[in-house]
């Protein structure tokens, strides 16, 4: 029924929240594994980090950034409605506002992460 019921924005917002939550959880598992490698096999750890820096790794990193950003923004949307139930009347508008913020902030992150994959200078330098 979950896939057959035609929910509207609220159901999509919830489904994306769950999917992004699971994606973030999967990354945290991977992250625990790679940090563990730093202690037990630093060479393999370095190899893994260079994989993260490859074009394919950067695409996955951008997807992770998108999942974290969506999950955070929708989390704030839910908190707003929890504290002010009358805001539920504007839940669709809040969701669209989330997408505007997601696009603006997400683009900056995506460019920062993906620029080196195209041989370009990343806009922000962190001393690397």
């Amino acid at each position: 029924m979950l896939f057959r019921y035609r929910g509207s924005e609220g159901m999509l917002a919830w489904a994306f929240h769950r999917i992004s939550g699971v994606a973030i959880w999967a990354f945290i598992l991977l992250h625990v594994l790679d940090i563990w490698l730093a202690n037990v096999n630093y060479k393999l750890y370095n190899d893994l980090l260079s994989l993260y820096g490859s074009p394919g790794g950067r695409v996955l990193e951008t997807a992770l950034g998108a999942a974290v950003l969506y999950h955070a923004l929708n989390g704030v949307r839910i908190i707003v409605m929890d504290f002010w139930p009358a805001m539920t009347r504007y839940h669709k508008q809040l969701w669209y506002a989330n997408w505007v913020l997601f696009t603006v902030v997400g683009l900056v992150f995506a460019i920062q992460i993906m620029a080196p994959a195209f041989g370009l200078q990343a806009p922000f330098s962190f001393g690397g």
Binding site: S8, E9, G10
Partner: peptide
């Protein structure tokens, strides 16, 4: 889980999630 299917489905237009 504030999914809003209930509010959308209500034939009386009750703001159920609220």
């Amino acid at each position: 889980r504030t999914i809003f299917n209930c509010t959308d489905a209500c034939p009386r237009g009750i703001h159920i999630t609220q």
